[in-house]
Amino acid sequence: MEKITRRELLKKGSVVGVGLTTSFSLGKKGFAQEVGKKTPLPKIVERSRESNLERMEKDLQRALQKPLQERHWVYVIDVKKCVGCAACIAACQTENRTPPGVVYRPVIHEELGKYPNVTRRHIPRLCNQCDNPPCTPVCPVDATYKRADGIVVMDYDRCIGCRYCVSACPYNSRLFDFGEFYAKGKGFFPMMPYENVPTYEYKVNWNRQRGKSPVGNVRKCHFCLHRIERGLLPQCLVTCLGGVNYFGDSNDIRSLVSELISKSNVMRLKEELGTDPQVYYLL
């Protein structure tokens, strides 16, 4: 069920009140092109017994047929299955071409017990895309906001880089792009060709250059929004070798994620803070 908090109501009201100007300023670069245009979705080969991946792809396509505000993306992580290989981190860094130190989904390795009776567990931590995000209201310039489909996005062109949202996130899910490169600036290395490749976050090609966005901006996980809007699952999910991750629309009761999060072995990080995180952990 969609719950409308008072803040949302006020926000919606003010949007209506301010009218055209706001709608123009909210029409962000990338998403603006997509209005009224249907992207061709990839074909899925039908098989007698479908895998989770195929089911999630179908869920995704079904969700994309609906208008934006009727989708609600959630992410489910089966902690038991995670082996801590960090392939998802590498995949995410490659997909979003994040600079050194900017890692959207670190995997926390926790060691339990006392030698010799020890065990480890691995907990991937990505942006929780909270339904009541503490990071968006603090932004002094409204450069970060929650989309109708539940994803908290950044407006790189507007962010002034004050890092208030970084402090305000209880999960440390927000990261700052300090403008460093993997090779350039380290000794006498020149800029490597792979560092010139633009990132395609929010469906816009961003060339990382000194003083230009996203350098000097706060960056965060967005569930690979540019991929899911094209009918592709998040990069970390498809890379995972253990099938740890699930992604889908929780407003669709037939989807795999709805099935998973309705079970009893579900928990979320720091629920007590009232952030209503949308990344679920299966125990």
């Binding site: 002094p140 310039v141 450069a143 880089g161 706060v218």
Partner: peptide
């Protein structure tokens, strides 16, 4: 001086966000 984009400082007036204590 602490801003990532110091030359965008005037955005706090042009894109003022009423929910932000900083604004």
């Amino acid at each position: 001086m602490d801003l990532g984009h110091p030359w965008r400082f005037f955005y706090v007036f042009s894109h003022w966000n009423y929910t932000s204590v900083l604004a």
